[in-house]
């Protein structure tokens, strides 16, 4: 997210930057060659404040947690403290979320290096003082009182957002987005990389905010799932799918838009246009079979005859 959404944090000020920008400043290949310089005047800041959950866990923007910010804020603090032990760092958190292997240890170590952690709600404002310093106002639950610090540089950990156009991208292959705008997996636990579209898999932040190890694990799972489909050289169809009897088909085309999987096409058969169901795409819902006015579609496993026979048996006096 861009910092300009957050008017309360003086986004116009050049020394209020996002974590992404800060990451570049810290990078050896970045604009400063890895030297810590603040954007406004190129001097080395002596005090830095970092603010978490900017746009995340916030009803005005995104309700979800961006998941990676707590950890990269600690990472930034740690890099700074190891390189420049005299720098003062204030980390403002709503709460610190360090769930993950070795993450808590990382947190404890960063604290030991001397980074100051301030927990307790959202930072209310960042404003520019007459002497040019940036004033950060927040609340510290441990002190049970409001706190105020003056710093040379403010870093905003802005939210991870789904990229523009992901909805359109998804609709190209009938994968759907969840409420937050990320592509949706079929099942959180059982099918974490598959989408509604068979053969389309997702990995990484397109599915929701996540860190590098998680993205890699998901990417490998997606690669394996893809390979499992491709390597045999053949596709196994479900047995419970629909099939068109093309001699009965009257070519009305009612079924084509009904199919949620775009499995039905009109193709030429014996010189006429007839419906054809692609067996690899059909998921077996039976909507087409129920709608066909010519009863030309057989839904294997749940044929009209089978269901009628059940109804007949159950209504037998």
């Amino acid at each position: 997210m861009s910092k300009h959404h957050f008017k309360e944090y003086s986004p116009h000020h050049p020394d209020v930057i996002t974590s992404m920008e800060f990451e570049r400043i810290l990078s050896a290949t970045g604009p400063t060659g890895g030297e810590l310089k603040r954007p406004s005047d190129g001097t080395k800041p002596k005090t830095i404040a970092m603010i978490s959950c900017v746009g995340s866990r916030d009803e005005r923007y995104h309700r979800y947690c961006s998941k990676v910010c707590c950890m990269y804020m600690l990472k930034h603090a740690r890099i700074l403290k190891e390189k420049y032990p005299d720098i003062k760092i204030f980390l403002f958190f709503i709460d610190v979320r360090t769930a993950g292997k070795d993450f808590e240890e990382f947190y404890v170590y960063t604290k030991e290096l001397g980074a100051k952690i301030i927990r307790g709600g959202r930072v209310s404002a960042v404003d520019v003082k007459p002497d040019g310093k940036l004033r950060v106002r927040g609340f510290d639950v441990d002190l049970c009182s409001p706190v105020e610090v003056s710093v040379d540089l403010v870093v905003l950990a802005t939210a991870i957002e789904p990229p523009d156009g992901v909805e359109e991208l998804g609709s190209m292959f009938t994968a759907t987005c969840g409420r937050e705008g990320f592509l949706r997996e079929v099942h959180t636990k059982l099918y974490p990389v598959e989408t509604q579209a068979r053969g389309v898999f997702i990995a990484g932040c397109v599915q929701g905010p996540k860190d590098i190890p998680e993205s890699i694990a998901q990417a490998r799972a997606a690669a394996a799932a893809t390979a499992a489909l491709v390597i045999p050289g053949k596709i196994r169809f479900e047995a419970v799918i629909s099939e068109v009897d093309r001699d009965k088909c009257s070519s009305c085309g009612v079924c084509v838009p009904l199919c949620p999987y775009t499995a039905i096409r009109i193709v030429e058969y014996k010189g006429k246009e007839k419906a054809y169901i692609e067996p690899a795409l059909c998921a077996g819902c039976g909507v087409c079979a129920s709608a066909c006015p010519s009863r030309a579609i057989t839904f294997h496993g749940f044929t009209t005859e089978q269901i009628m026979a059940q109804i007949d048996a159950l209504t037998e006096a």
Binding site: V240, G284, G286, V287, S290, Q310, I311
Partner: peptide, 10 residues
């Protein structure tokens, strides 16, 4: 009577 989906109900 079991059907795969309510959309199958004619």
């Amino acid at each position: 009577v079991r059907v795969p989906c309510s959309g199958r109900v004619e």
